[in-house]
Amino acid sequence: LQAFIKTLTGKTFTVEMEPSDTIENLKAKIQDKEGIPPDQQRLIFAGKQLEDGRTLSDYNIQKESTLHLVL
């Protein structure tokens, strides 16, 4: 599935991932794409901060969901 990552500066980019991917995997993909170390990334979806060990499906993240990236 493709999801949108929106930063506080208003920049939006897309990442490809599977519902079974962990938040940790997602942070690694963001690092590959944007060069931001995972330990500096905080991802917010539906008002909740996402925990590394959980999966996208745990948070009911669907295709074309928008996640907010806070540094």
Score class of each variant (00 low, 15 high):
L1D: 04
L1Q: 06
Q2P: 07
A3H: 04
F4S: 08
F4H: 13
I5W: 03
K6T: 14
K6Y: 10
T7G: 05
T7R: 07
L8G: 11
L8Q: 14
L8E: 15
T9H: 13
T9C: 13
T9M: 10
T9F: 12
T9P: 04
T9W: 15
G10C: 05
G10K: 03
K11A: 07
K11Y: 15
K11Q: 08
T12S: 10
F13D: 00
T14V: 12
V15Q: 01
E16V: 11
M17T: 07
E18H: 14
P19E: 10
P19F: 12
S20N: 13
S20R: 07
S20H: 13
S20Y: 12
S20K: 08
D21Y: 04
I23S: 01
I23A: 02
E24R: 14
E24C: 06
E24P: 02
E24M: 13
L26P: 00
L26I: 08
L26Q: 01
K27H: 01
A28S: 11
A28V: 11
A28H: 12
A28I: 13
A28K: 15
K29C: 04
I30P: 01
I30G: 01
I30R: 00
D32F: 11
D32L: 14
K33W: 07
K33T: 08
E34D: 04
G35E: 02
I36N: 03
I36M: 05
I36L: 06
P37L: 06
P37G: 03
P37H: 11
P38S: 14
D39C: 10
D39W: 13
Q40G: 05
Q40R: 12
Q41N: 01
L43V: 05
L43Y: 03
L43G: 00
I44E: 09
I44N: 05
I44D: 05
F45P: 00
F45R: 02
A46Q: 14
Q49M: 13
Q49D: 13
L50Y: 02
L50M: 10
L50F: 02
D52Y: 04
G53A: 10
G53V: 06
R54V: 06
R54K: 14
R54E: 06
T55Q: 08
T55L: 11
L56K: 00
L56V: 13
S57R: 10
S57V: 07
D58F: 15
Y59N: 02
Y59Q: 03
Y59E: 02
N60I: 08
N60C: 05
I61M: 08
I61L: 08
Q62I: 12
Q62W: 10
Q62C: 05
Q62T: 15
K63F: 11
K63W: 10
E64C: 09
E64N: 15
E64V: 07
E64I: 07
S65D: 14
S65A: 12
T66G: 05
T66W: 09
T66C: 05
L67I: 15
L67C: 01
H68V: 12
H68Y: 15
L69V: 05
L69G: 00
V70G: 04
V70T: 09
L71A: 08
